[in-house]
């Protein structure tokens, strides 16, 4: 496997610290410790594409250039960073006149990029490169009977579809199965959480997330696992407001897939950021302790 430079992005350093706190030990445990990309800058997310297309590619170009100089590919756990870096990378590699112009600007400012970096998501690397057989062998604590709703959201599977299906992805379900958990048939798995709409047009954001929570409950899930910090933020931190607004008990823990993976690999639950959940995890722990049986 090629060496990866870990690209945290802003979320994994602030509101989604528990993603970083679980993804790093997980990669270490399977024998591929990750190092953070030195002096990375913010990917620009959806904001730069909406304001300035050239700058959107340029700020990503600086990161790609940093990774290229280290001879590494980029591993971006945040769905937004993954998509933004990948999209800009494909554009810079395209040979289009606008792309060449930006490559020239990158060179002039000391960030020369020759187009050799590749951007990947941890889910892709775990399932498609390292492989479930390897992971299965490393599982020491099976998550037997834990019912998991696998939520992929948007930007990990769309618009780039090279490692999974854009409408019916299965990689996360397969990974959870390899850990011994039981993925439920979560039909909302790629329905949008609305991204930043919870903050900008709240009623729209709440409605979208209500649908996601409701479907997970309907399918009997004990937990929703996500691959994206913004999805987790919306589903977790707006849950109280959703319950109040729709007068419906859709309470359910929201965790990162890497937290469950860490547990299955035998890492201590104290080292996987579980204490950062704002939703009580008592029922979840009871299920883990009792091998999926309710107490």
């Amino acid at each position: 496997m090629k060496d990866y430079a870990y690209f945290p992005g802003c979320s994994l350093k602030e509101n989604s610290k528990h993603y970083e706190e679980s993804i790093l030990p997980v990669f270490k445990a399977i024998g591929h410790p990750l190092e953070e990309l030195e002096d990375w800058n913010c990917c620009g997310a959806t904001a730069y594409f909406s304001v300035d297309n050239d700058m959107a590619a340029a700020v990503c170009g600086r990161n790609l250039s940093l990774a290229e100089k280290q001879g590494k590919d980029i591993l971006a756990p945040c769905a937004g960073c993954y998509l933004t870096l990948k999209k800009s990378n494909l554009f810079l590699q395209s040979g289009a006149p606008e792309a060449k112009k930006i490559l020239g600007d990158l060179k002039r400012s000391g960030c020369e990029y020759q187009g050799r970096s590749v951007v990947k998501h941890p889910l892709e690397v775990l399932v498609r490169e390292i492989g479930l057989d390897v992971i299965r062998k490393k599982v020491v604590r099976k998550l037997t009977g834990l019912k998991v709703a696998c939520y992929y959201g948007c930007q990990v599977v769309r618009p780039y579809t090279d490692f999974d299906d854009p409408d019916h992805p299965t990689s996360l379900d397969a990974l959870m199965e390899a850990l011994g958990a039981e993925p439920v048939d979560y039909s909302a798995k790629t329905r949008c959480c609305g991204g930043l709409l919870t903050g900008t047009i709240e009623n729209v954001g709440l409605r979208l997330n209500h649908l996601l929570l409701k479907e997970a409950k309907r399918k009997g899930a004990d937990v929703i696992v996500t691959v994206c910090p913004l999805c987790l933020f919306n589903l977790e931190l707006f849950q109280d407001k959703i319950i109040k607004t729709y007068k419906e008990d859709v309470r359910i823990p929201i965790l990162f897939f890497s937290q469950l993976m860490g547990l299955a690999l035998g890492l201590s639950r104290d080292d996987l950021g579980f204490s950062r959940s704002t939703i009580p995890l008592d029922a979840f722990w009871a299920k883990i302790r009792n091998g999926g049986q309710n107490v």
Binding site: C154, R158, P159, T161, D167, G194, L196, V204
Partner: peptide
């Protein structure tokens, strides 16, 4: 402005 970049239409 409502488009949240989920790319469903695009794919």
């Amino acid at each position: 402005w409502l488009c949240s970049s989920c790319y469903t239409c695009q794919v």
